[in-house]
């Protein structure tokens, strides 16, 4: 019933893809990633605008909302940094602003609760499969 990939080809592809992702992604500035699983750093514009990057905690929000609310109803694509979120959209009630409006959740003037990342931290999902594979060499690299 299943169509299978021809043998070994994916392993090379996987290795190459991982190396590329890791080198470009840069693993962040901390080099010491042990953030909570699924925390998303969003930093398309923040650094350039002199704001700390935004950190979105999935664990906190999924206790309060199903994935469907954000990823179907509010239109968040499944891609860190893939939604071109900015402050105008937020104050107009899109994305984070659909809830952070002083009605469902605390409103936008609490800049530092969202903009809480270390400056320079790149856009990424923390503790993702690819990141976890990449972290091992850090421990091995002490000697």
């Amino acid at each position: 019933m299943t169509i299978r990939h021809p043998g070994a080809s994916w392993r090379g592809a996987l290795a190459a893809a991982l190396v590329v992702t890791i080198c470009i992604g840069g693993i962040g500035t901390s080099g010491d990633a042990r953030a909570e699983y699924a925390d998303v750093v969003i930093n398309n514009y923040s650094d350039a605008a002199g704001m700390r990057p935004v950190i979105f905690p999935h664990w906190f929000h999924r206790i309060r909302f199903r994935c469907k609310v954000c990823h179907a109803d509010l239109g968040f694509q499944f891609k860190a940094g893939g939604n071109e979120i900015n402050m105008v959209k937020i104050i107009d009630g899109q994305f984070c602003g659909a809830c952070h409006n002083g009605d469902i959740a605390w409103s936008v003037e609490n800049c530092n609760l969202c903009h809480s990342g270390k400056p320079g931290t790149p856009t990424q999902v923390h503790e993702s499969t690819i990141q976890k594979l990449a972290i091992q060499p850090q421990a091995g690299g002490q000697q």
């Binding site: 010491d32 990633a33 750093v41 700390r52 950190i55 530092n112 903009h115 809480s116 400056p119 923390h126």
Partner: peptide, 13 residues
């Protein structure tokens, strides 16, 4: 956690 800025007051909230 290595990604939040401890110098930011919001982080501690």
């Amino acid at each position: 956690d290595g990604i939040h800025d401890p110098d930011n007051d919001g982080t501690h909230a």
